[in-house]
Amino acid sequence: MSAQDAAKLSFTIDGKEVKAEPGQTILQAAALAGIYIPHLCAMKGLSPWGSCRVCTVLVNGKPQAACTMPVAEGMIVENDTAELKDLRSSIVEMLFVEGNHFCMFCEKSGNCELQAMGYRLGMLQPRHDYMFPTRQVDASHPDVMLDHNRCILCARCIRASKELDGKNVFQFIHRGAHKRIGVDAAGGAGGTNLAVTDKAAEACPVGCIVKKRVGFAVPIGQRLYDTKPIGSHIEAGRAAKE
């Protein structure tokens, strides 16, 4: 055992021993160990957020978000269980019925993480009833479009703008059922300093923030999740190289 290995702490996920550095989250340690814990709001390079709750695991029997929960020596994590799969499916289905997700004409289809999560969890139809909310489309920016119908309020754009772009283009406004992404200008995204090259323009897991004039460059059927489930690269042990 090397000195570095000795410094690591150890815990288990579904009975499998996982080594981790102090300060890592369960989600990060799991990914490096080749274990995929389904997640949507968590994104490599961004600070943990914990809003989608898809990554809910049991830590010593208690539900916790794997993306915000720091690892601890000896903790017992349950991830791949029928109960948790059902809980995650229910949450993903909540996201589907809460917004207006029309995959059939969405540019993100095939690359969409929400859709991919539905595929991975085997969702054929949500158990919840559709809400069909009235939401806005903001096309005021010359290069980027915001379609709030598809937003899942994961805050990846908020964090990417702040943490990676050094800007503050996005922030949540309102609360509860009315919560939505606000932009740093009265008249829409066009009035902000958002640039098409910003990481924030790429952080969206769904088709809410999409770039203009580059749609459908990759045909439907040849996209990221068309043939392989989301999480495959982690399960193939490629998380570190990501």
């Binding site: 989608c52 019925v97 809460e98 919840h128 949540f172 509860g176 059922a177 919560k179």
Partner: peptide, 18 residues
């Protein structure tokens, strides 16, 4: 609860309404 949910996380924001 529907009125007072902050809306940060999915289960509370959506689940309370359902």
């Amino acid at each position: 609860f529907v009125e007072e949910s902050c809306g940060y996380c999915t289960p509370c924001r959506v689940g309370t309404r359902l």
